[in-house]
Amino acid sequence: MDILLQQIVNGLVVGSVYALIALGYTMVYGILGLINFAHGEVLMIGALTALQTLGVLERIAPDLGPLAQLAIALGVAVPVCMTLGFLMERLAYRRLRNAPRLAPLITAIGVSFLLQTVAMILWGRNYHTFPQLIPTTPLEPVSGVFITPVQITIVVVSALMMAGLLVLVNRTRLGRAMRATAENHRVASLMGVDVNAIIGATFVIGAGLAAVAGVMFASNYGIAHYAMGFLPGLKAFTAAVLGGIGNLGGAMLGGIVLGLVESLGAGYIEHLSFGFLNSSYQDIFAFIILGLVLIFRPTGLLGERVSDRA
C-alpha cells in the first residue's frame, strides 16, 4: 500500500513535468500540424543554460541565497530558450509551411540532432551534477509516503504555469488570435490576425515552458547532460497524443496519466511479468501507450483539435 501511494506521488511529479513539455508540442501541433521533434532539446538547453548561469553566479556572487540563484538561472534560461524557439520557427519551419508533410518533420529531426550536437560541443559529453538548490531530502513521511520539497515545488510550479497558460489562451487577445490561427490560418489572416507573429509567439511560449520544465527536471534528478531532452521530449509527445493532440487540457491530463502509468508500471513490472522484466524496461511504457493510443483511439482521451492547414 505504501509502495502504491509512493509510486502515485512519484508519478504525479514526473507527470506534471511531462504535462508542461507536452503543452509545447500540442500548441505547435495544433497550429501547424507539425511534430516539433526538437522540443525536447529546448528542455535540455534550458537545463544546461541554467546550470551554466549557476556556475557563473557561484563565482561572481557566492553569497546569494538558493532561491535567488534559482530565480536568476530561470531568468536566463527562459529567454534563451524562447529565442531558440523563435529562431527555430523563423529560420527552419516557416520556409516549409507549405511543403509536403514529411519535409518539416525531417527538418525537425535534423534540428533536434543539431541542438544535441551543439550542446555536446558546448558542454561536453559528460553528465553534470545539477546543484540542488531546493532540498531533495524527503520531508517527514505522511502515511509512509516520502515527498521532497523539490517535488512539491515541481507540482506547484507546473500547476501555476498551466493555469497561467489557460488564462493566456482563453482570456487574452493573443490567446484568441492563437485559437483562431489554429482553427484556420487563412481565415484568421483575413480577420486581421498576423498569422506569422502568432505562430512565432506559440513557439516562444512553448519554449519558455520547456525551459522551466528543463530546470525542474534537472533539479529533481540532480543531473543535466546533452541528451537529457530526448526521452522526456518523446514521452511528452506521447502525453500530448494521449490527451488528444492540439488540446491543452488533454496535454495536461495526458502528462499526468503517462507519469502515473510509467511510475506504477516500473514499480510493478516485475510482478506483472513474473520476474522476466525489471524496471530497466520503464521507458517502453511510453512507447507502448503511444502505439496503443494511436491505433485504438488516435484522437486521444479528450479529442484532438488540429488546424486544417488549408
Binding site: 514529411l102 509527445f237 517502453i284 511510453a286 503511444l290 502505439g291
Partner: peptide
C-alpha cells in the same frame, strides 16, 4: 500491420518507438 493506417507523422514516431523498444 497495426501502424500503417496512421498519418505520416504519427507513423514516424511510432516506428521510432519500435526501434527504441
Amino acid at each position: 500491420f497495426p501502424v500503417l493506417r496512421l498519418r505520416g507523422d504519427y507513423l514516424a514516431i511510432v516506428t521510432l518507438g519500435f526501434g527504441e523498444i
